[in-house]
Amino acid sequence: MHEYSIVAALVDRVAREAGPRHAHVQRLAVTIGELAGVDVPLLQTAYDTFRAGTVCADAELTIRQVAAEWRCPGCDTALARGAPLRCATCGRPARLTAGDEIILERIEMEVPDV
């Protein structure tokens, strides 16, 4: 259930941007990789539970999911899902090239005219 602590970190981060601008936050875009260790439905639930009374109260959360991708660092061959993580051609240990993201991509907010 660390999704709640991830939401807490997310809301803190957004508050640091929105607070000083007196902004009204409308939408957040985050990216979660398959191997990030974050359960996406649980993250959404945690966000919906947690956002009340915060700067994110009215902000829709958009979650983009990224599949895990392992490649050989030598020949760049992508490994089949579930295969041993060693290149069948070069024998080198594979490298994770996508799928461990826990990223806040973008905050969309209304900034009052000053």
């Binding site: 941007e17 826990i102 806040l104 973008r106």
Partner: peptide, 10 residues
């Protein structure tokens, strides 16, 4: 509406 690109680990 201002989009702010953060692109930072949560």
């Amino acid at each position: 509406v201002v989009p702010l690109e953060v692109q930072e680990r949560i």
